[in-house]
């Protein structure tokens, strides 16, 4: 079986990562499995982790008061989930529910923040990777907000 360092290096989110950085990051990670319906994160709870999805699909959800739960986005194998651990107050904004059997590498946020503070090159590399995903999801959300399937399609 591959060790976490190999899994980190091979995950698309960390494509091209320097070997020494992969080792540092892997030191904060562990494997986890979530059964269908289990929650990886709950809105309002401390955001202590982020996840590299290795298998399965995770729904990002919100439950408006008095209404049914609403799925905002889904994150699948090969993608990263969770950036609330990066910024104070380190609190999840949305629920994250396993839509099927989900296998992840789960990273300890405090551990990784400490390593980023100590090694600015690692921190900068990591921030660039998170920023790219954030921008992509921002663009996707804008397109979603356009509701393109209106009467003109």
């Amino acid at each position: 079986m591959k060790d976490i360092g190999q899994m980190v290096a091979e995950h698309p989110f960390f494509e091209g990562l320097a070997a020494e950085h992969a080792t540092l990051i892997a030191g904060c990670g562990g494997l986890a499995v979530y059964d269908p319906g289990a929650y990886l994160a709950r809105a309002g709870s401390p955001a202590e982790h982020f996840f590299l999805i290795r298998h399965g699909k995770v729904a990002l959800e919100v439950r408006p008061p008095g209404q049914d739960t609403f799925i905002l986005d889904s994150v699948s194998a090969g993608e990263m989930m969770g950036w609330a651990w990066l910024y104070e107050p380190y609190v999840w904004q949305f629920d994250a529910r396993a839509m099927d059997l989900v296998r992840v590498i789960e990273f300890d946020g405090a551990c990784l923040r400490g390593k980023c503070e100590a090694d600015p090159a690692l921190g900068y590399d990591l921030m660039k990777r998170f920023a790219r995903v954030m921008v992509q999801r921002f663009v996707d959300t804008r397109l979603q907000l356009m509701d393109v399937y209106g009467s003109r399609d």
Binding site: K57, A59, D68, T69, I71, D73, S74
Partner: peptide
């Protein structure tokens, strides 16, 4: 958009 009965992708 979908509710929890949907098990496919969500997004554009």
């Amino acid at each position: 958009h979908a509710d929890q009965t949907w098990d496919g992708h969500i997004g554009v």
